[in-house]
Amino acid sequence: KRPMNAFMVWSRGQRRKMALENPKMHNSEISKRLGADWKLLTDAEKRPFIDEAKRLRAVHMKEYPDYK
């Protein structure tokens, strides 16, 4: 299984929150909104998620060195 990218790290928490706030919203609509919201974030706002994704990638490479 591939490590999560920055968007996936960020959206994991946001998806739960949005689903709780909008229980009747379909998952596909939540995904569209999350994508739009992510694009509106500044680089500074994205930085912690980018850093976490880099950390996850490094751990994955160490655990699965032959993964392609």
Rank of each mutant, 00 (worst) to 15 (best):
D51C: 04
D66F: 09
R47V: 03
Q14T: 09
A19C: 09
R57V: 08
R33N: 07
E45F: 12
L56Q: 08
D43A: 08
M61C: 13
W38N: 06
T42Q: 07
K62C: 13
N22F: 08
R33G: 03
Y67L: 12
A53S: 09
S11M: 06
P3K: 08
L40V: 08
E63F: 04
D66L: 09
M8T: 11
F49I: 09
H26L: 14
L56E: 12
D37K: 09
K39W: 04
M61R: 12
W10L: 02
V59G: 12
R12S: 15
M18H: 07
H60F: 02
K24A: 07
S11Q: 11
Q14K: 04
R2A: 13
R2D: 14
W10K: 00
H26E: 13
L40S: 13
N5Y: 02
N5C: 11
K54V: 08
L20I: 09
M61H: 12
E29Y: 00
G13A: 13
A53Q: 03
S11I: 05
A44N: 08
P3M: 04
E45P: 02
M4L: 14
R47Q: 15
H60Q: 13
K54C: 06
K24T: 06
E63H: 14
Y67N: 15
P65K: 11
M18N: 04
Y64G: 15
H60C: 09
K54M: 09
A58E: 14
D43Q: 06
R33C: 06
E29G: 01
P48H: 00
L41D: 04
R2C: 12
K1R: 05
V59T: 13
N5P: 00
D43E: 11
L56G: 06
M8W: 07
D37Q: 14
L34R: 00
E29N: 00
I30V: 06
Y67W: 10
R16T: 13
M61T: 12
R57T: 14
L56M: 14
T42D: 08
V9W: 02
M8I: 10
R55W: 07
K68M: 10
N27C: 09
N27P: 15
F49E: 05
A53N: 01
K46E: 03
K39F: 09
M18F: 09
E45H: 03
K17E: 12
V59F: 11
R12C: 13
L41I: 00
V9K: 00
M18G: 01
A19H: 15
L40D: 11
E63S: 07
D37M: 13
Y67A: 15
K1M: 12
P65C: 12
P65I: 04
R15Y: 12
M8S: 08
N22G: 02
H26F: 04
I30L: 08
D37W: 03
M8Y: 07
H26T: 15
S28K: 07
D43R: 03
A19K: 13
G13S: 12
T42I: 03
K17S: 08
E29C: 00
W38D: 07
M4N: 06
N22Q: 04
G13K: 09
E29W: 00
A6I: 01
G13P: 00
K62R: 11
K62P: 12
A19E: 15
K54R: 11
V9R: 00
A19T: 11
L20Y: 10
L20C: 08
K17I: 13
N5D: 15
N22R: 00
A44W: 06
R12I: 13
Q14W: 00
N5A: 03
M18L: 12
K68G: 11
D43G: 04
F49R: 01
M18I: 14
V59C: 12
L41V: 03
P3R: 08
R57W: 08
M8C: 08
T42H: 06
D66R: 07
I50Q: 12
I50T: 08
N5T: 15
R12D: 15
L41Y: 01
M4S: 06
P48Y: 09
V9T: 02
I30E: 09
D43L: 10
Y67V: 14
D51K: 05
K17Y: 07
D66G: 13
F49A: 05
S11E: 12
K68Y: 02
D51Q: 08
F49L: 01
L56H: 05
L20K: 08
P65A: 11
R33W: 03
V59L: 13
R16S: 12
A19S: 10
M8H: 08
V59N: 15
A58C: 11
K32S: 11
R16C: 08
A6Q: 02
K54D: 11
M8D: 15
R2E: 13
Y64D: 15
K68A: 15
F7L: 03
D51E: 14
I50F: 13
L40K: 14
E29T: 05
Y64M: 14
E45S: 01
K46V: 04
L34M: 08
Y64K: 14
N5L: 04
F49P: 01
R2L: 11
A53R: 00
P3N: 11
K17F: 03
K54E: 14
K62V: 11
E63M: 10
S28C: 10
L40T: 12
E63C: 02
